[in-house]
Structures are given as C-alpha cells and as structure tokens.
C-alpha cells in the first residue's frame, strides 16, 4: 500500500515538473519564435485562402524575424487590429515609414506614412479592412511575418515578398542612407 502511494506521488511529481517545463517553453516559443494561425476571410485573396472559407489556409508566423520591427515592402504580416485589440489581421506591407503612397479610398488621396508606422493593405481590394480604412498602423502592433503556408498540404510553400506592381510607393526612401529632413521632437 505504501509502495502504491509512493508510486502515485512519483507520478504526480513527474507530471508537475513536466508541466512546469512544457508550458513555459511552449508559451515562449509561440511568443518569440513562431506562431501558427488560421487565416479567416477573403481579404488576402488570391495569395491566401484562394478557395474561400471551404479550405482555410494555415500559415506559420515568424515572430523572431520581427523582434526588431524590421519588415520589407511586400511582406505579409499579422498585426493586432487597431480597432479591436482582441483581433489580429493579416495583410501585406505596402509602404514603410517615410514613403509617399497613393491611397485607395482613404480620407487623404496621398499620404506620407509617419515615422514608426506601416501602410498595410489586403490583396483583395474592396473586400479588405486595411489601412485605407483606418490609416497607417504603428509598428508596435506588429505581431509576426507570415513565412510559410503549412496547410492544406498541397499548398505548402514559402511566402515570398511581392508588392503588387500598381501599388508601389510614389516616393520611397530606399534605405537608411537618406537623410530625412523631419523635425524630430521626441521629448520623452
């Protein structure tokens, strides 16, 4: 009898210690390295969800590559929706900070993306809730960069950055070599 309770206790101890290893490691991997998410909605057709809701795509979101908030034009990224913090949206980066962009139905026809912001759009114009509705989004809302489609298996592929040819920025600061003549007044 005593042997049996000892065995049970050992099992409980093994379970608890395994639990305390597995849960933090899983949470950290999901927060820091990679996250898996199902894509809902038609806003990124035809790149994602080409068949609509019948076969939703599952994408791998690389969180490590955005740890320094570095993205390129054309990357597909997931950001926390500025209108609803409980929701994440997946869109394509069209313009980075400092770029001039011609908008599609935003309140201003031409916009300069402010510092620390992104201009994101869905590929399915007119069926997408994107920067043309809510304006540029802050880089701090960036959640991850979609790097692979992992489900369904026949669509397994790496996602390459590509800007739609008609959506290139009108005037872009090619890199960090350009001097921006903005008045920086950060008095925090």
């Amino acid at each position: 009898m005593a042997q049996k309770t000892g065995l049970g206790r050992r099992y409980i101890r093994a379970f608890v210690s395994g639990f305390f290893v597995a849960v933090p490691v899983t949470v950290t991997v999901l927060d820091r390295l990679a996250y898996v998410a199902r894509v809902d909605g038609a806003s990124m057709q035809p790149s994602l969800n080409p068949e609509g809701a019948s076969a939703p795509d599952v994408v791998l979101l690389n969180r490590w590559s955005v740890r320094n908030y570095q993205v390129q034009r054309g990357d597909i990224v997931s950001v926390v929706s500025p209108k609803n913090p409980k929701q994440k949206i997946i869109k394509r980066v069209i313009a980075l900070e400092g770029d001039f962009i011609k908008t599609l139905g935003y309140k201003n026809r031409y916009v300069r993306v402010p510092d620390g912001h992104l201009w994101i759009e869905g590929d399915h114009h007119g069926h997408s809730f994107d920067s043309n509705t809510f304006g540029p989004v802050s880089l701090g809302l960036l959640h991850g960069r979609a790097s692979h489609i992992i489900w369904p298996p026949n669509r397994w592929q790496k996602i390459k950055p590509s800007v739609p040819p008609d959506r290139r920025p009108l005037l872009s600061w090619g890199g960090s070599t350009e001097d921006e003549d903005d008045d920086d007044d950060d008095d925090e």
């Binding site: 320094n68 402010p114 510092d115 620390g116 802050s138 880089l139 701090g140 950060d186 925090e188």
Partner: peptide, 11 residues
C-alpha cells in the same frame, strides 16, 4: 505603452 512613433521606446 510602446511609443506609437518608435516601438523600441516606451512611454
């Protein structure tokens, strides 16, 4: 909070 214009800075 993260600063909206510089996500590396906190306010």
């Amino acid at each position: 909070a993260k600063s909206p214009f510089n996500p590396r800075m906190n306010i």
